[in-house]
Structure formats: structure tokens, C-alpha cells
Design a protein around this nucleic acid. Structure first.
Lengths: 143, 143
DNA sequence: CCCAATTAAGTTGTGCACAACCCATTGGTG
DNA sequence: CACCAATGGGTTGTGCACAACTTAATTGGG
């Protein structure tokens, strides 16, 4: 049967499908607040770390400026954050939350319970999955 | 520290990051053949199952016609497949591989080895990950 | 000091993902 | 037969992801 249902292919498809299913779970929870899942991830970094450069946001989320620039522009247009050129280094742009951006943290609240009950996994299995994914995200030999 | 690095959030981000990292691994392998990762998934279904309706492709890949229609149109423009309205049911469209589409299977070959050595996981861990993802893709209580 | 290489953001173009819609065909049911 | 809900596929609009490129600022070496 050749490689029709080979191991790696299955894992890769499951990963791809699970990632899309996960954002689909977040959608109805975030939609009322007017933000998407990637936007929510950016906000989480800002809630946790305070004002952050575009470069550091990119490092944290593994996204480049081609993705972040328009995304941040949309969040800025919503009044959730501001962007300002760095004083010391004019190349950098520092992203800071506005008051509405800060308040959104409490408005959205903790999404954990809603998500946990939507997945058929125990807490142990989730922890296991998390550790495997973290290791999977740390590639071995890129060459 | 509130829910700044909560369990579910970490897993969801790891899933999101791992999925993107995975398609990034496929990109250089598929690029020379002129297909993307989602296009490759469609081809795999066709290689495995033969002519398939758009509806069944959507069920297999968990994608709707809004995603599949333009994707299939691009594969058709490349001469890799053809689309034809069903004879019995005029609503359905049957997707069939052309000869070049069939030959691409051998041209691309088995990508497993290249992918395995790019991930820092043992075969056992990959199997474990696969089973967890399969269960994660089977949601518990949607309501 | 000056210039080349590097870095930080942004822009452009392509393709995926999905919601919201449209339309034609189908398969009942009255 | 007439009607009507359901189904299959397509289109439109928005946003994400990324490659490739551009521009401006910075840094380091001669």
C-alpha cells in the first residue's frame, strides 16, 4: 500500500487538523470581544510582559513582521494598543496596551474551563501532549 | 500571575506553533514539485482513494468548499487533476487525477525520512503523540 | 570618519481558512 | 404534480502565514 497512511503523514495531518480545530474552539469565545486567535496570542504576550517590541513579539510567537505588522495595525485601529518608535533605537517599534486593551484581559477572563470540557482528554494526557509538543517544537537537525 | 501561562493556553500555542513548524518542514520538500502542503494532502487522498467527490475530500480533510474550490482550481490549472459533474447526481463534482498527477506520487516519493530526522522525538514518542492528537481531534462535549 | 553589512519594520503578492452568502439539483410530502 | 427543505458546490470578503523585497537606522572594521 506504499506510504498511503504512513506514520509521519498521519501525525502531520492530525497536527494540522488539531490546530485548526483548536482555533475553531476559540473563535466563539473570542468573537464577542472582536479579536481573533492570533490577535489574542499577541494580547497575552502584552498582558504578561508589558510593552514589547515588534521583534520580541515575533520571537515569542514565531511570526515575522509580514504577519505581525498588519495584525498590529488592526489591533491599533481597534484602540487596543499603540505603536511608537523606540527613542534609543529608531528602528524598533514598541507596542503598548491602551486602557481598553488592558481591560480586555478581565473581560475575556479565563478560557480554560470552556476549552477543557471540549476535548476528550484527561489532565494527565494534556500534560503529556504539552511536553511532546514542546519537544516537537525543538527541531533536531535542521540541515 | 493570573492565567498568564496557563495549561490550556500553552498547549494551544504549542499546537499552533508545531503545526506551522511542520508545514515549514514540508515546504522545501514540496516546493520543487510546485505544490503546497494542503495541496499535497488533497493529492494523498486521491492517490489512496482514486477519484473522489469534493464532498468526500472535504470530509477527509475537514475543509469546506470555500477552501477546496479554489485549491482544486489551482491543481486543475497545473494539469494535475480534472473535475467533472457527477452523471447520476448533477450537484456533485468528481475529482480525478491526470497522468501527471499520478506520476507526481513517485516523483515526490516518501518524505518520512527527511521529516523524522528533523524532529527531536523517538518513534515511541511520535506514536504517543499521534494517539493523543487523534483523541484530541475527537471533541468531547461540543455543547 | 566612512562605508559595508546587519538589523527592524513595513509592503506586496500568493495561498490557505472560514464565515456568509448564492444557486442549482435532489428528494421528499402533500 | 407543486412545493419545499436539504444538499453539493461555488463566490465573496476578511484575516492569517510566509516569501521576497524595500527602506531606514545602526553597527563594526578599516
Amino acid at each position: 500500500m506504499r506510504e498511503s497512511t504512513a506514520l509521519d503523514e498521519m501525525i502531520c495531518f492530525q497536527l494540522y487538523a488539531a490546530s485548526r480545530a483548536m482555533t475553531a474552539l476559540y473563535r466563539p469565545l473570542l468573537d464577542p470581544h472582536g479579536v481573533t486567535y492570533p490577535q489574542y496570542l499577541v494580547l497575552r504576550v502584552l498582558w504578561h510582559d508589558g510593552p514589547t517590541t515588534v521583534r520580541d513579539l515575533g520571537r515569542a510567537l514565531r511570526l515575522d513582521s509580514g504577519t505581525l505588522s498588519p495584525l498590529l495595525k488592526r489591533l491599533e485601529a481597534q484602540g487596543l494598543l499603540t505603536r511608537a518608535r523606540g527613542a534609543d533605537d529608531e528602528r524598533t517599534v514598541l507596542v503598548s496596551l491602551t486602557d481598553p486593551g488592558q481591560q480586555l484581559r478581565d473581560a475575556i477572563g479565563d478560557l480554560t474551563p470552556a476549552l477543557l470540557c471540549a476535548v476528550d482528554l484527561t489532565v494527565d494526557e494534556l500534560t503529556q501532549l504539552q511536553h511532546l509538543l514542546i519537544r516537537a517544537n525543538r527541531p533536531g537537525r535542521t540541515a
